[in-house]
Nucleic acid binder design. Structure first.
Lengths: 260, 260
DNA sequence: GAAAGTGTTTGCGTGATGTGAAAAAACAGA
DNA sequence: TCTGTTTTTTCACATCACGCAAACACTTTC
């Protein structure tokens, strides 16, 4: 066969790992023949793979039914992976590329005790002059970054700050021109943001600047961090703009995806 | 040499899985040659295995350093394996209610090769510790979570880490003010914890924070998981405090109750 | 800036080894 | 005890993984 040999290393290993993935997609114990059908492989082939997986502890075989299931070795492996996987550092690694592609400044924030806090900063080629830097905390309602946390982070730790900003907004209406400073107004705003996939503001936090922000989600579906693009061109916040799509795609690649 | 056939199925798969195991034992990113030395295999062989693992997403290669580390696919696999555990599922489902009732952050951990690993996290309004989150591993002696495992998990898998932390404690006494870093000191600590029904520390792991932790026990009376409450009020660790009783009751309701 | 050193990746021929079909064994229901 | 189903083992063959060594990338040294 003169077909394309894809980048993988060992054919048998690739096949075996496909079997493993098929097992992890299934919700519970699987019989050998079901697995073989899922993977479109001969039964005996799958059986031999499983024998090795069982030996390694990744898979266990249920006593009487003969069905196979993921075992304690898989848990140990996963915990080891979980322990060293750090969303923040992974995101930080890709920040320069994102900033370059979008031709905007990119920054990475996490939720700290005093609000959304900037922890990484990547300048664009044409630096936008701002007074922000590492450690800056952003407001919840008037910044794209804050709004992304509002839409995707668990509500409880945000609640105090949300109440505070709502009180301030009620006393000074022009601060929040694009939504009503009430519970229903907030809900509508959150829905709008989640539907669009990212939050955006133009000139709200800093006049003359526009920003869009999207979340990096963990396996609980909560925002672990928020990535924000800052620039001067109002067109970049339009739905369908290239920058918005780059940002969402970037964050999606860092987020935890339950399956394919 | 067709004499001795071990229980496994495929030789190459067995070898490849030994490589995977070696990776999960290491604490962080590993270079190719280190891995090869660990497994006593030729470098090129390990490299090809890794190529397949990378293709499957189980392993990633760090940008420019060339080192390899466990990747998101391993997380997915591990979470799928954890999801098969009914104890963990039921505990996770009840976590939000517990956190709300106790007005503290609640987290769920299970034991991995590198210590107690946080798998689920439910935040309360009280401040979130910035450096902790999903995937954090907790020390055995200085955290309430670790101590709960120490008191209720089978000793064998903990022994290595216990020895390690004891050595460290002996060199730095202030780390463990409330017990002697000796075998009898540990025994006394364990007895105290078991008697009280939950483990607690105040400011040991993180200054200014208090925590209480209780186990979810399986039919053998061994800890399958540990539920921890974290807050700032020292009164919550007092014997008889409402939070402690809620926590113990919650864990007891999850323990020892398979459907059939 | 060239040269040497370390570590990773890739070709290649060979023979061990994984493959598929089919037989054998275990199991369940009738 | 006999069928239908699913798991396990057998076996001859051609493939595919192995190890060597050369190529390549990157860092350090003079």
């Amino acid at each position: 066969m003169a077909e394309r040999r894809e980048g993988g290393g060992l054919q048998s290993l690739d096949a075996a790992l496909r079997v493993l993935r098929a097992m992890s997609i299934r919700a519970g114990p699987v019989s050998l023949s079901e697995l073989a059908r899922d993977c479109a492989m001969p039964v005996s082939k799958v059986h031999r793979y499983l024998a090795s997986f069982v030996l390694a502890g990744l898979v266990t075989q249920e006593g009487r039914s003969g069905k196979y299931d993921l075992g304690p070795g898989a848990i140990r492996l996963g915990l080891a992976a979980i322990a060293r996987n750090d969303f923040v550092n992974r995101a930080a690694d890709g920040l320069p590329e994102l900033a370059q592609k979008a031709e905007m400044s990119a920054l990475l924030s996490i939720w700290g005790d005093h609000g959304a806090t900037v922890v990484r900063w990547e300048r664009a080629r044409t630096p936008t002059v701002t007074s922000m830097g590492l450690g800056t905390t952003m407001p919840l309602l008037n910044s794209a970054t804050g709004r992304a946390f509002l839409a995707w982070a668990p509500r409880a730790p945000l609640q105090d700050m949300l109440d505070l900003e709502l009180r301030r907004a009620r006393g000074n209406r022009p601060l929040t021109p694009d939504f009503a400073p009430t519970r229903t107004g907030i809900d509508a705003l959150v829905n709008r943001i989640r539907e669009q996939g990212f939050a955006s503001v133009h000139g709200l936090f800093i006049p003359g600047l526009v920003a869009l922000a999207a979340p990096v989600l963990d396996w609980q579906g909560e925002a672990q961090a928020v990535v924000t693009l800052i620039g001067t061109d109002p067109d970049t916040t339009r739905a369908g703009a290239a920058q918005g799509r780059s940002l969402v795609e970037f964050c999606r690649s860092l987020s935890f995806a339950p399956e394919d």
